[in-house]
Structure formats: structure tokens, C-alpha cells
Design a binder for these strands. Structure first.
Length: 288
DNA sequence: CAGTGGCCCTGTCTGC
DNA sequence: TGCAGACAGGGCCACT
């Protein structure tokens, strides 16, 4: 479940592995992987051949590779997507969908870029680049680790909404990078139930919430991300170690690390939320 | 217009 | 043993 920390770890791996290299050719073996490239797989391939990767950038959970053509190879990992930099002669992964070979492919030990995705929620496409982001991503808010993130605008935007705080944290147009794991972790640290109404949060509480989000994202990056299974690995195939630091997510029934009360699990938006019943009491039903 | 819910996918696990 | 169903869930879009 790649969220900001996992995507950032992948970005760093790609920066080391493919920045500055020139694409020799591309093979799409599963058309669904490029379904968001509306002009089709052939057009996708044609726009990449011969282009040099200038950099590797990220906003929220999106990655993009600016090219020397003024376009950008853009990708989202969805739930199970992987971008791997592996030896060009290594065996194909089970769910290998796209391969990018580089112009140094004839050199011994040459590595290529592979997009592997079991659940096919992720995908790649080529779009016009832009500053600070491709227009395609203009609706994605900055993430809390972005130096240009506007804390005051976040606090105001959060309190202006009329919804639950977890929904707001997951809304990538308000703040990007958080998914179910890090939203639950942020709420646990902030001692807030996810259904607390956003418009009733005080400014200091909203600011503390943001601080906790920043902390958990930063710590998770340092740990290499969270890997529950083999579905998330870095570009070099390494699993992250943050799972052992999780306080809420995936800890249903186990004692809260703060107060010992068993962590609860509740249905939420066709998925689930984990929280401490004592540290994070449900809001009173009566409101307004 | 903001908020909400459905849908897309496949592998793994659980229950009957 | 086998099969059906639940579950994992980010982003987009339709609907209210």
C-alpha cells in the first residue's frame, strides 16, 4: 500500500537508478498499465523512445520523470504497483507490465526500469510537464513535507470543511500523501477519532494534527516505508521496516501502546480504521 | 459546489 | 476438499 513514504523511497531509488539515462525502447505487455495514456500504448512507447530522463519528482503519491522533450513520464503505484530498477537480463516478474530499456543496455550489468503491478490499480502515462507539476497533477495538493506547504491554508481549509477528520486527511486535494495507514497513525498520535467533525477542531488542534502527520511521514521514510508483504519494495527491491513502528494500523485487538486498551477496528468507507477506544473516543453523536 | 458512494482489479484468507 | 465471499484500498467519476 504505497503512500507518501513508500513512494518517496521509490523516488530516491529511481533518482539513483535512472536519472540522466536515455531511453532506448519501451515494451508494454499489459495494456491496462497504460490505460490512462488515452492515445494508446503505441503512442506511449513512441513518446519515450530516445528521450533522456532529467530528474525524478514526486507530489503526494504521484511520481513523474521530466524528459528532455518537455513531457514527463508519470506514474501512480495504486495499491500494488512497483517501479523496479533491475538487471536487464533478470527473469520477468509475474505481473510485469512495462519495461524500459536504456541506451547502455549492451553494457554488462546494465539495468532497466520495470513496472510491476499485481492489482493493476496503478499505471503509467506520458503527459506535458509543468512547473511546479504537470497540469495533470494540478489538483493534487502539496504534501506536508513539501517546503512550500502552506500550514495556515491547511488549517483554514480543514476547519472550513464539514466532514470527518479522517476523510479530510485522505482527500488529496486538501493535503496529499496520506492513505489509510498514515491517516490512522496520524490520528492515533493526535488522539483524535477519525469521525471528529473537521469544523469543530480548534486551530491549535488542527496544527497539532498536521505536526503529527509530518512526524509520522518523516519517520516512515527514514525506516524505508511500510511493507506488509512483498507488494511494496523500493526500486532496489528492499522492504521497509516501519511496520514495527505502527501504533494503530494493523494492530486490532492488540494493546494500545499508550494505555493498554485493545485497539479497535471500525468499518470506514468500504475499508477499515484502527484506533484506540480510550485515547480516541468517538465524537458525541449530537452535533450542531 | 461540496460531500459521498461505487467501481476498478487480483491474490489471499476465512467460513461453510 | 472446494467454492463463495470478504478483504486489501487510491483515484476518479457520477450522483445528490
Amino acid at each position: 500500500m504505497p503512500e507518501l513514504p513508500e513512494v518517496e523511497v521509490v523516488r530516491r531509488g529511481l533518482e539513483r537508478g535512472v536519472a540522466g539515462r536515455t531511453i532506448a525502447g519501451v515494451t508494454v505487455t499489459h495494456p491496462r498499465a497504460v490505460r490512462r495514456h488515452l492515445a494508446g500504448a503505441d503512442d506511449f512507447t513512441a513518446r519515450l523512445a530516445g528521450r533522456t530522463v532529467a530528474a525524478v519528482r514526486r507530489r503526494g503519491k504521484y511520481l513523474w520523470l521530466p524528459l528532455d522533450s518537455g513531457e514527463a513520464l508519470t506514474g501512480h503505484l495504486g495499491m500494488s504497483g512497483q517501479l523496479l530498477v533491475v538487471p536487464a537480463d533478470s527473469p520477468a516478474q509475474k505481473h510485469l507490465h512495462v519495461r524500459l530499456r536504456f541506451t547502455d543496455a549492451d553494457r554488462p550489468g546494465a539495468r532497466e526500469l520495470r513496472f510491476v503491478d499485481q492489482r493493476t490499480f496503478g499505471g503509467l502515462l506520458v503527459v506535458p510537464d509543468g512547473d511546479p507539476v504537470p497540469p495533470l497533477l494540478a489538483h493534487i495538493a502539496r504534501d506536508p513535507l513539501d517546503p512550500a506547504f502552506d500550514d495556515d491554508a491547511f488549517v483554514a481549509g480543514l476547519r472550513r470543511r464539514r466532514t470527518g477528520v479522517k476523510r479530510a486527511l485522505l482527500d488529496q486535494t486538501l493535503v496529499s500523501g496520506l492513505g489509510n495507514i498514515y491517516a490512522d497513525e496520524t490520528l492515533w498520535r493526535a488522539r483524535l477519532h477519525g469521525e471528529r467533525p473537521t469544523d469543530l477542531l480548534t486551530r491549535p488542534a488542527a496544527r497539532r494534527l498536521l505536526g503529527h502527520a509530518r512526524d509520522v511521514l518523516t519517520e516512515a521514510i527514514a525506516a524505508g516505508g511500510t511493507s506488509f508483504d512483498a507488494l511494496y519494495v523500493s526500486a532496489d527491491g528492499v522492504s521497509g521496516l516501519f511496520e514495527r513502528s505502527l501504533d494503530a494500523y494493523g494492530r486490532e485487538g492488540r494493546p494500545c501502546r499508550r494505555c493498554g486498551t485493545p485497539v479497535r477496528r471500525e468499518a470506514f468507507m468500504n475499508r477499515s480504521s484502527a484506533s484506540c477506544p480510550r485515547c480516541q473516543p468517538r465524537p458525541r453523536p449530537a452535533r450542531r
